[in-house]
Amino acid sequence: MFRPGHYGVALVLYAPVGGWLLALGHLTAAVAGGAGVLWLTMLPDWDSRLPFVSHRGPTHTLPFAALVGGVAWAVTTAVTAAIGPAIGVGDYAVGPVSVPTFAAGVGTLSVLAHLAADLLTPMGVAVLWPVSSRRYTLSMTTADNTVWNYALFALGIFTTAVTAYLGAKLLAAGTV
């Protein structure tokens, strides 16, 4: 899948999280999470910049998704521990969860969204590597199909708009 398709799938998968955060009254967290997912969703394709790493190899796996989430958690834990005492704040939160937990979720979801988009293509992905090199695919479209890429992007925008609307309605009604 190309960039627009990956962005669309990332938006579709993040939309329920963003809508939930919005319904709880955490607009900043909802927007920050969405921005983070969009920013990181292309991370697995950095494999094309690395020597000796095949495209859709180790960076297109569930272990890589866990690694990205773990690194996000570790970095934000270290940063919040370092700056918290300096500014007199001991416990950081993004919406209803801690900053490290939120960062880990965003990082993991970003990679999972990328994998989901690539599952649509005939090449598929070996999500269970290194346990298995079997590639999984739904073989619905080629990665370079412009119609599919922009349709997925439009679906992501639509899903985000609908969940933002519903989240705002729930917030206004005070039902969450």
Rank of each mutant, 00 (worst) to 15 (best):
residue 17 V to I: 15
residue 18 G to Q: 05
residue 18 G to S: 07
residue 19 G to V: 00
residue 22 L to F: 10
residue 22 L to N: 06
residue 23 A to H: 01
residue 26 H to V: 09
residue 27 L to Q: 10
residue 27 L to G: 11
residue 28 T to Q: 11
residue 30 A to I: 01
residue 30 A to P: 03
residue 30 A to C: 06
residue 30 A to N: 01
residue 31 V to I: 08
residue 31 V to E: 03
residue 32 A to T: 02
residue 33 G to T: 01
residue 35 A to G: 14
residue 35 A to D: 04
residue 36 G to F: 00
residue 36 G to I: 01
residue 36 G to L: 08
residue 37 V to Q: 01
residue 37 V to R: 01
residue 37 V to P: 01
residue 39 W to M: 14
residue 42 M to L: 12
residue 44 P to N: 02
residue 44 P to G: 02
residue 45 D to A: 06
residue 45 D to E: 04
residue 45 D to K: 04
residue 46 W to P: 08
residue 47 D to V: 02
residue 48 S to L: 09
residue 49 R to C: 07
residue 49 R to D: 14
residue 51 P to T: 06
residue 54 S to V: 13
residue 54 S to W: 14
residue 55 H to N: 05
residue 55 H to L: 06
residue 56 R to P: 09
residue 56 R to A: 09
residue 58 P to N: 05
residue 59 T to N: 08
residue 61 T to H: 02
residue 61 T to M: 04
residue 62 L to R: 01
residue 62 L to T: 03
residue 62 L to S: 06
residue 62 L to M: 05
residue 62 L to F: 03
residue 63 P to A: 13
residue 63 P to S: 13
residue 63 P to F: 05
residue 63 P to W: 04
residue 64 F to G: 02
residue 66 A to T: 12
residue 66 A to C: 13
residue 66 A to I: 10
residue 67 L to E: 07
residue 69 G to E: 00
residue 69 G to D: 05
residue 71 V to M: 09
residue 71 V to D: 14
residue 72 A to I: 08
residue 74 A to T: 05
residue 74 A to F: 11
residue 74 A to E: 13
residue 75 V to S: 10
residue 76 T to F: 06
residue 77 T to C: 15
residue 82 A to W: 11
residue 83 I to P: 13
residue 84 G to F: 00
residue 84 G to M: 07
residue 84 G to A: 05
residue 85 P to D: 09
residue 85 P to V: 05
residue 85 P to L: 03
residue 85 P to E: 11
residue 86 A to N: 13
residue 87 I to T: 07
residue 90 G to T: 03
residue 91 D to L: 11
residue 91 D to V: 15
residue 93 A to S: 15
residue 93 A to W: 12
residue 94 V to N: 10
residue 95 G to R: 11
residue 95 G to A: 12
residue 95 G to Y: 09
residue 95 G to C: 12
residue 95 G to Q: 11
residue 95 G to N: 08
residue 96 P to S: 15
residue 96 P to F: 12
residue 97 V to R: 14
residue 98 S to K: 01
residue 98 S to Y: 06
residue 98 S to E: 12
residue 99 V to C: 03
residue 99 V to T: 10
